[in-house]
Structures are given as structure tokens and as C-alpha cells.
Design a protein around this nucleic acid. Structure first.
Length: 379
RNA sequence: GGAGAGGUGGUCGAGCGGUUAAUGGCACUGGGCUGUAAACCCAGCGUCCUUCGGGACUACGAAGGUUCGAAUCCUUCCCUCUCCA
């Protein structure tokens, strides 16, 4: 068990802006350390980045993970985690933790919930038991977990969604955001903890604008762009990001929720996004899809059966240093647990390394070249 | 030597006269996965053509036979497995 550091105040500084693009270099301060941005947060929904022990995440340079309020509330329960000293201590993670509010589960468990003004009635996906989550209870749960960055409870608007429905959904999210803010303030000193608001509004710039304006009034520590990558065309996603980022205050971190592919990250950083999370590197790893410096490799493909070379010659992760494509394919085909482990090691290391290189490029004012490369490869 | 059971597509295994190129599972091949109900899901999977609607051929141990029609019924043969000597 590690000691809680406990001290420190949440904060964000922009250290440098790239000369030719919207990209910016910054640092997040939380009670659990400093986090250089732009940053990718590996997803640890249930208090674990699937297939990876915390030690390795530290080795890969991960400073912040994303955990999930809804999942931890159901199992093992936030009160249990509180009693065990909070989520950091429970999972033995001394870095920072951002908790998603469960808004995405409202979206993805559509058949198991009923939304009202007051909150969301859920049927547990685990045992069918009934639960009621409100903006207030979601804040309480995140406090119990002890997350460094909490997210407001929102409704992740689906796609496609007509203007009127997207508007109603966004407005509900804004009313919930205010209730989250109020409960957060009533709980008193967040001890260095941050609360982020989430911009909704589907792919409608006008709605995004109103959403951002509403959140600005509430003075959140950071602003997220939610409701993207839910089935809309890529172009619509990029246009929405581009239209939304300028609406967000420059002195606060900007977090694009649930995105994305390596190319998505490069583009969004160029638009001024500071934080990302996505299940792609971990989930795809377990499903035999690996991200490399030369594009995606579907390791289960028969062509790799006799390929003695490294997965990614330009990668220095444990997997690439030591194991061949042929072996990785064999592990996948055989259903060996090691397959998920080695694949996840690579994908997570690849994402973190990619963010590292992105930060360097921004520092040297050469980020424009990354965007050009993207255009040239058509990625 | 005697009694019984059985041989089906890569594999296991249904089918027991016609809507059967033959249910299913597995394996295999390909695709998908973006705030994780995911080590998951979808599709294809005899051969050759196709104007993508379909068409032609070859298939259920082997060879004959019955029938308008057979993986399915009959005969002979070959081969497996179980039990008894």
C-alpha cells in the first residue's frame, strides 16, 4: 500500500503554445502529482487497466488513469472503497485519477435505464437490481472514491439525434451540471480536487455554443467535450471539436471524452485539446488489433503466422523488444492470457509514447508537421 | 469365433425417402471495435462460373440395387469400436 500524498491544490497552466497550430503544452497539478499535457489517460473502468498491473503503467509513464463512477458504485461499492482509504489506496495507484460520472453508461445501457428530470433509474447490468443515480449522488460517489478530477453527471446525446432532442438533452445536462456544481460546493473543500463540466449539443454548433456558455457561468475547473464518437461521421466529429474548442476558456484544461484513434488525437491536439481517454488501445489489444507507427496491425491475420519480425520496429516497449509477430499471433489464436497482456502493453505504451512525442513537437514549435503528415497519409 | 454399435463436409456431431450443399458447436478466413455489460461482436467457410437474381458440377466408407427421387431403404464388400469366448 502506498501513502496518500493528500496535499496540493488542483491547477492548470499553459506553458507554451505551438507557433503554427492550436496545440498547446501545459501541466495539470493534482493532489497526486503533475501531469504534462496533452495527455492520454488509459481507461481503468473498474479500477484496473485491463491486463496491466499498476507497476507497468508507472513504468510506461502513465500519470493519470480514468475510472468509472457507475461501475465502482455497483461493485465493490463506493462506501467500501471509502472505508478502504479511497480508490488510490484501494488500487494502489499513486498517480492521479479522473472518474467519469456514469453519463456514458446512461448512453450505452439504453435498455436498462429510464431518465427523468431528477436523475436516472438504472437496472444493474450485473444482477438486475434497481438503482437511482442523481447529479448529487454521482458527486457524492466520486468524493467517496477520492478522485482527483470528477465529472458532472451528463446525458451523452446519441447520434443520430434531431435538433429538438439534442437541445432538450443538452439542456437537461446543463441543469444537472448546475446541480453537480451546487452539491460539490456544499461538500466544501475539495482538497485539491477538480470538477469538470461537459459540453453537449450533438453536432449542432449553436447548441454547443449555448452549452459552453452555460458551463462557463458555473466556473468549472476544466471543460470536457462530450457526446462525440458515438456514431457520427468523422468529419462531423472534427467540425464539432473545431467549433467547440474556441468556446472554452483558454486557461482551463480541455478534455475530449472517449476519443480516439491515434490520428484523432493528433488532430484534436492541433485544435487545442489537452486531455483524452479512450478504450481503443486496451479493448482493441484484447481483440487482436494493434496500433503501430506504420498503422494498424491485425495480429490475428494469417499473414503473420510466419513473421519473425517485431510488431513495430520503431517501438521500444517490452512486447516489441522481445516477441515476434508470429508469436503474438500464436498467443492470440491460442487464447493465451499472455496475448491480452503483451498486446495491451504495446498499445498503451504506444499511445503514451505518441503523446510524449506530440508534446516534444509542440515544445519545438514543429507540431504543424504532424498535421501535414496526417494529411499526406490520409489517416 | 459369437453378439452388438457404428462409418456424414477441416473436426466433433445432427439428420434416418423429397423445401439437404446437408442444423449446431469447434477450428479456420476476413471485418469491426472511440467517456468498456467486450479476451467481444459480425460475416464467410465443397469446387467452378455469375449481368450478384442465380447457374453448373462433385459430395454423406466402397460397389451395386430399389425408387420419379437416397446421406436416409436393400445386397455385398472394406474398416472402426464395445462386450462375450
Amino acid at each position: 500500500m502506498r501513502e496518500e500524498s493528500g496535499a496540493g491544490k488542483f491547477g492548470f497552466e499553459v506553458l507554451h503554445r505551438d507557433a503554427g497550430t492550436g496545440a498547446r503544452l501545459g501541466v495539470l497539478h493534482t493532489a497526486h502529482g503533475e501531469i504534462p499535457t496533452p495527455v492520454f489517460m488509459p481507461v481503468a473502468t473498474a479500477g484496473s487497466v485491463k491486463a496491466l498491473p499498476q507497476e507497468w503503467l508507472e513504468q510506461f509513464g502513465a500519470r493519470i488513469l480514468l475510472a468509472n463512477t457507475y461501475h465502482l458504485y455497483l461493485r465493490p461499492g463506493h462506501e467500501r472503497i471509502r472505508a478502504l482509504g479511497g480508490l488510490h489506496r484501494f488500487m494502489s495507484w499513486s498517480g492521479s485519477i479522473l472518474t467519469d460520472s456514469g453519463g456514458f453508461q446512461v448512453f450505452s445501457h439504453r435498455d436498462l435505464r429510464r431518465i427523468s428530470e431528477e436523475g436516472v433509474h438504472f437496472r444493474s447490468h450485473l444482477d438486475g437490481s434497481a438503482h437511482f443515480l442523481t447529479p448529487e449522488s454521482v458527486i457524492e460517489i466520486q468524493r467517496a472514491l477520492g478522485s482527483d478530477i470528477a465529472m458532472v453527471f451528463d446525458e451523452c446525446t446519441p447520434y443520430p439525434c434531431g435538433y429538438a432532442d439534442a437541445e432538450a438533452s443538452m439542456e437537461l445536462s446543463m441543469r444537472w451540471a448546475r446541480r453537480c456544481r451546487e452539491r460539490w460546493d456544499r461538500l466544501g473543500d475539495g482538497r485539491g480536487r477538480a470538477l469538470f463540466g461537459i459540453v453537449q449539443g450533438g453536432v449542432h454548433p449553436g447548441l454547443r455554443e449555448r452549452s459552453a456558455a452555460a458551463l462557463l457561468e458555473m466556473d468549472f475547473d476544466g471543460l470536457a467535450i462530450g457526446g462525440l464518437s458515438v456514431g457520427e461521421p468523422k468529419q462531423a466529429m472534427y467540425e464539432t471539436i473545431a467549433a467547440t474548442v474556441p468556446l472554452l476558456p483558454a486557461d482551463r484544461p480541455r478534455y475530449l471524452m472517449g476519443v480516439g484513434t491515434p490520428a484523432d488525437l493528433v488532430r484534436a491536439v492541433g485544435m487545442g485539446v489537452d486531455m483524452f481517454d479512450c478504450v481503443l488501445p486496451t479493448r482493441n489489444a484484447r481483440n487482436g488489433c494493434l496500433f503501430t507507427s506504420r498503422g494498424r496491425i491485425i495480429i490475428k491475420n494469417a499473414v503473420y503466422a510466419g513473421d519473425d519480425g517485431p510488431l513495430d520496429p520503431d517501438c521500444s516497449c517490452l512486447t516489441c523488444r522481445r516477441y515476434s509477430r508470429a508469436y503474438l499471433r500464436h498467443l492470440y489464436m491460442s487464447g493465451e492470457h499472455l496475448s491480452a497482456i503483451l498486446n495491451t502493453v504495446h498499445n498503451v505504451a504506444f499511445y503514451l509514447d505518441r503523446m510524449d512525442k506530440i508534446r516534444q513537437a509542440i515544445a519545438f514549435n514543429s507540431y504543424g508537421r504532424w498535421l501535414e503528415k496526417l494529411e499526406n497519409t490520409g489517416a
